[in-house]
Design a protein around this nucleic acid. Structure first.
Lengths: 260, 260
DNA sequence: AGAATAGTGTCTCTAAGACAGTATAGA
DNA sequence: TCTATACTGTCTTAGAGACACTATTCT
């Protein structure tokens, strides 16, 4: 049988089919605090609980990246080709993760500069940027039962994986700049690292270090119009450089527990 | 509407469905050369071309990890709970990647010690460990038209992504030991790094470095029964330690092209 | 004036890499 | 005996972190 004949004869219904969704872990920084975009579910299952924005992939029409970009744009109201970084995170397919039917979810991770408040989509009664710390996530991706906003499905686990990926990405890629506008100061860049890593960094050493990494940032020649809120000189302005990887990397101090 | 009522009323056919497969990039080292497990396709499409082992997920019965372990076991004939490392790689869902119908493929990456020759599965006319270098993959995941074994679907891209992931994993995790039997020598461990990274390493410095990383390897007190093939003293034997991450990491020398 | 901050200088310590050297095995 | 190899010693250099210090801005 030729391949053409085979295709003409083909019956897709012979194969098991599943619904596939994309879910987006969209992170941004507001007022120096890491936030994630969540939607409040207006329908069962998990009605009234909060979930990652997402939806069904338009099979045959779009690829996974496009589906994720579409979902993110629908929730944030942002036009897609903005300065947002979007990358695939992982896929989740445990039986029973959705009580309705088997669903495979391809999760994406997005970083963006401070964005406007989202508008609620069709299937969400509300949508908001929520401080990640307010969700009380544990390292294993669990969420205590008493949390004010409890996440639906296995989204606490997905968010936890996304946060861990984000922390790692800041070490060896210049993606911290994706959280900032087109020009920024080194103290602003340091604030990104501090709130994603949740660790205080030494200002002087950080300053010297980011300048020493080739292609990380490049100066614009300008400075901020005024000093900081509590005083201090005007800071020089920088934009993102052309490096795709940081070398040497900015490693966060590893604790003994992380290693074993 | 209560959640129970909703579920009773639910009609899954309202949602778009896709077939979901798992494909496994299984790597091992034979005679000092990195090999990947491939199957020759016995059916259209891509009949006679080589592909990564994989198959449809048994929806509702197994999760993605279990599906990948099952497919790998079916192809290699190995019982699952062996010393093989298996982790999710990424998902691929471009429209048209399978000419029959839309298919989302969740790719997995496996490392294992030298394994027996595979047996052909039901839908494969042949299966074999193939030297990765013989496929002529380019960095972008393309394959030259004149290659002796041309890969089906987008499997050249998936394999390329898997190789890049493997190279990175050796830097900051102790997974190089997954390519070796339960006890091994430091020169054997070095050979793993050299053939995955495709770079010669300095024997003396490598030796000192792996011993200095806490929890990477631990001595057994024994040595090999005889020296090397071309002479030299007996090497001490080690087993994998309890570290999950290497700190400090074993970084491969970064070239300027990788960074920009 | 006082406090906070941007940015630089300097010192110490760790770790990577280059290289040399010794001991032990096979041919 | 000759060669290859396991393993160790030593030197140099890069880079991370601690600390100090100056200059600039806000209150």
């Amino acid at each position: 049988m030729t391949e053409d004949a085979f295709l003409a004869d083909y019956d897709p219904s012979r194969y098991p089919a599943v619904a596939v969704t994309v879910d987006v872990v969209a992170l941004t920084i507001r007022d120096g605090v890491l936030h994630v975009l969540l939607v409040e579910r207006g329908e069962a299952p998990f009605q009234g609980r909060w979930a990652l924005p997402g939806g069904f992939v338009k099979v045959g029409e779009e690829n996974l990246d496009q589906a994720a970009a579409r979902e993110l744009a629908e929730e944030t109201g942002l036009s897609s080709p903005s300065r947002v970084h979007l990358e695939q995170l992982a896929s989740y397919g445990d039986p029973g993760r959705d009580p309705r039917m088997p669903i495979i979810s391809v999760a994406y991770l997005a970083f963006g500069p401070e964005m406007p408040d989202p508008r609620a989509g069709s299937d969400a009664s509300d949508a908001a940027w929520v401080p990640v710390a307010s969700l009380g996530l544990t390292a294993s991706g669990a969420q205590p039962p008493g949390a004010t906003r409890r996440l639906a499905f296995d989204h606490a686990r997905i968010l936890s994986d996304g946060l861990e990926r984000a922390r790692g990405k800041l070490e060896y890629t210049p993606l911290a700049t994706a959280f900032l506008p087109g020009t920024f100061t080194i103290p602003e860049l340091r604030a990104v690292y501090e709130c994603v890593w949740d660790e205080a960094l030494h200002a002087g050493n950080f300053h010297r270090k980011v300048l020493s990494v080739p292609g990380f940032i490049e100066g614009t020649g300008d400075t901020t119009a005024s000093g900081g809120r509590k005083g201090g000189p005007r800071a020089r302005l920088y934009r993102a450089g052309d490096a795709r990887l940081l070398h040497p990397a900015l490693l966060r101090p590893a604790s003994e527990e992380d290693i074993r």
